[in-house]
Amino acid sequence: MSAASSTDPVPNRIHARPVPRPGRWIAAAIVVVLAAMAVHALVTNPKFAWDTVGLYLRDVTVIRGVGWTLILTVGSMLIGIVLAVVLAIMRRSDNPVLRSVAWFYIWLFRGTPIWTQLVFWGLISVLYPTLSLGIPFGPEFVTFETQTVITAFWAALLGLGLNEAAYLAEIVRAGLGSVDKGQEEAARALGMKESTILRRIVIPQAMRVIVPPTGNETISMLKTTSLVSAVPFTLDLTFATNAIGNRIFEPIPLLIVSAFWYLLITSVLMVGQYYLERYYGRGTGESKPRGRGPRTPRLGRQAAIKASGTAKDDPFLEVTP
């Protein structure tokens, strides 16, 4: 708004001096100097070998490692999400057997280190040399050699996915629990079946609580895949860059190569998360009515979630292995 003009609707507009805050300038100056020192130290130290970093950034083995890391991240999150929804629904069930089995699963897989679980999945063929399909405790129809079915890749994928399911199950459960009971009642009063209520009414509303921590989990999973050497699976980004680094006796530039790729993928995931959150936040802002496709500012959405008082604010929900 224009201040000094005869059209000002506020005739006695206040023109006061702001409170002097020299501390802000001093603090900003200190931080800028520290940041400049850090950048200088990075760029000028020859031990970082930036030319080697540039050389290996697009190395075939490294790019292949990026591919495997992405496959492991996406695959294990898919396994995790599907299983987590099943576990969360089991935990809400009337059936005490289903409830306790889900509880036990979450207890076991959250309560042991991911490293231990990955080593275990790698050793599965030692524990059970053959797998078979048949009647429980009865005759077997088909028998496989475990080694040929559960390869290092599948062991890594299973290990990561089954572990992730335990964490995601709690997130999904909190999400389902965050939906107002009145929603289910209103849907029931309209004659909807329980499965329809879950699919059309409860889950879409739970998503705005589920998506943000799940995005967080995906970013976390990207980096957890670096532990698959425990299986051992040897094609992912971290293993590839470590192997090159050890071979050419220059571990540090190769660490930077892998850090660069993890950061790049994380940044892409963050963009995707932003759009997902915006989609599932529809109907909770004060934005204009939609034409086609929802658009809701995030601030309004967060305010609405807080105002509804339905979202659980559990700091332990986002803890990752």
Binding site: D180, G182, A186, A187, A189, I201, P204, Y280, R282, P289
Partner: peptide, 11 residues
Amino acid sequence: FQRFHLFPHMT
């Protein structure tokens, strides 16, 4: 219902 219970994610 007293508190409407419209589905908030739908127009």
